[in-house]
């Protein structure tokens, strides 16, 4: 789940937008609560949560957030062998 900013707590410092390595917030405008512009790209590094001076950002967790390995359909199957 992408980050959610509590507008009551946010002090409009822009730190989250500055620190996010995926540019999830887009550019910050002065004196506004940053917008979550590219929510699907949050990779949950939590840099913004850690750096927010007001504790205003929440990330939901746990998350099945990546493609994980799976067996191929049928191919090479059968018996107790690799």
């Amino acid at each position: 789940m992408p980050p959610v900013i509590d507008p009551k707590k946010c002090v409009h410092c822009g730190t989250c937008a500055q620190i996010c390595c995926m540019d999830v917030y887009g550019p910050a405008k002065p004196q506004t609560v940053p917008q979550v512009r590219y929510p699907e790209e949050c990779w949950h590094c939590r840099a913004c949560v850690m750096d927010c001076p007001a504790g205003a950002i929440e990330l939901t967790y746990p998350l099945p957030m990546m493609i994980l390995c799976k067996d191929a359909p049928a191919r090479g199957e059968g018996g107790d062998r690799p």
């Binding site: 493609i67 390995c69 799976k70 067996d71 191929a72 191919r75 090479g76």
Partner: peptide, 20 residues
Amino acid sequence: IKVQNLMSHYDVCLLKSAES
């Protein structure tokens, strides 16, 4: 996602063969 999917089959990333 399609390329990730292709890569994440066991027979592509772990148990490779000419066929796979």
